[in-house]
Structure formats: C-alpha cells, structure tokens
Amino acid sequence: MAHAYVASLQSEWLKKKGSLASWMVVTGAFFTPIIIIIARLVYHERLPALYASDGFWTVLWRNAWESMAIFLLPLGVILATSLIAQLEYKNNTWKQLHTTPLSLTIIFFSKLTVILVMMMQFLILFNAGIWLAGVIPQIIIPGVSWPGAIPYEYFLREDAFYFIDCLPIIALQYLLSLHYRNFLVSIGCGFIFWIGALGTLSWKYGFLLPYTYCMFNYLKAGVETKAAVPPVNIHGMALGYFLIFTLAGYYLYITKPDKG
C-alpha cells in the first residue's frame, strides 16, 4: 500500500511538471515581493528610516500578505487546485489512469497530496520572496542599514495558520473539480464562494464560510478593519471543514459510476 502510494505520488508529481498550476505557484509566490521591491526602489528616499524602524520584518510581512491573504492566495488556490484535478479531464486521461493497478483511494489521496505539497512549496517560495524584498533594496540603495533579525518563529506560526486556513478551499475545490468535467463549474463556484467570503467578513456569522479563514487570519493581526472578529478558533474550523470536504470528495469519487 505504502509502496503504491509513493509510486502514485511520483507519477502525479511528474504530471504537474510544466503545467499551468506549477507555473502559478512560482509566479504567484514572487508576484507581491517583486511589486514591493519595485515600490521600494522607486521611493528609495524613505528606505533609511523604514529600515531603521522597529519591527521592520513584521511590517514587511503584513505588507506582503495584505493582497495575498485577501485576493491572491484564495484565488490562486481555487485556480491551482482546479487545474491539477482537471489535468485528467482536459487530456482525456481518466480512463488510462483508472486502468492502472492503483486503488482509487491511492489515486485520490496522491493527487490531494500533490496539491498540499504545492501549497507548501508556494509558502516556502513566498517566504523567500519576502526575505528578498527586505534584502534587495538594502543591497542596492546605499546608506540603508540592515533591518535586524528575522522573527522566524512568528513567520513559521503564521505560515502554518495560512496553510491550515487554505485547507477547506483546497478540499472543496478538489471535490468540485473531480466531480464535474466542466472546468467552469469548479472555478465559477470558487469565485462565488470567494466573493461571498469577502461580502460576509463584517457579518457576525461570516466565520461559518470556509473561504473566509485566510482573510480572517490576516485581518485579526492588528489591522484596522470593519471585519467581525470570529468568536471561535478559525483554524480548528478550517481543519474541520477540510476533513468534511475531503471525506465527501472521496466518497463521491469512489462511487462515481463513470470513471473515464
């Protein structure tokens, strides 16, 4: 079983090579840091004061995550998850995959694992991008001091929270894109849920929507907003939704009467 899972994982990892989803991970991770670098180089006269201030890295982290947590990450997860699952529909390969000596359980979970690993890959690259956004302007612009120690523990904790908060989006998008042949169904539903999440941030029950958790994780971090503070542990709720959506997706997948 474990051997088959590893083989399936290798197979799935190879499939995503050169795919649009894998390019999205790289470009998405460096998009915001590059914008920050350009902005800082344009307004370089402000840099000496900025780099000398306390909490430089935390401010940089929040700046980088601002558009990422609200827009880019949820939308990127919606697109990348749908693209990975849709590889089989697009290439008409479900029938070939389902006639390999792999159990449906292994196929389902190895695909999901690849998506989760891609998510981790994104976070690692995004963290590297944030570091570069701090370091590059300091190297290029003369007279800018080194901004001090990086708060690794804070970064890692926040990374873990964002990862957990994305899990419900991954699981639901995975369910939809496995179940529906038409790519527009999963993407369309994802966009609707994301808009719904944006619209319910200030509603006291907004935390019930599984697409809100990335946004709440950013907004709770001391940012002035009109968002309602969730009265519950959103990370726990994210894990709960992830479990429910994954089990539902698995059930729908293995009971699907037509497998290619």
């Binding site: 399936s8 499939k15 090579k17 795919s19 290439n91 390969t93 029938k95 070939q96 390999t100």
Partner: peptide, 25 residues
C-alpha cells in the same frame, strides 16, 4: 487503449510513459 488517445499534452512522449511506468512499477 479505450477510444481516443489519452496523453498529457504538456509532457513529451517519454514523460507520458514515465508517468505510467511509475504507476505500473
């Protein structure tokens, strides 16, 4: 082989086979 070709368009012929070589071990 069932009906129309089932190949991953973004991969080469060798890579397509490598995908299934892993699955068949």
């Amino acid at each position: 082989l069932i009906e129309s070709p089932s190949v991953y368009g973004h991969l080469s012929a060798k890579e397509n086979l490598a995908v299934f070589q892993k699955a068949y071990h």
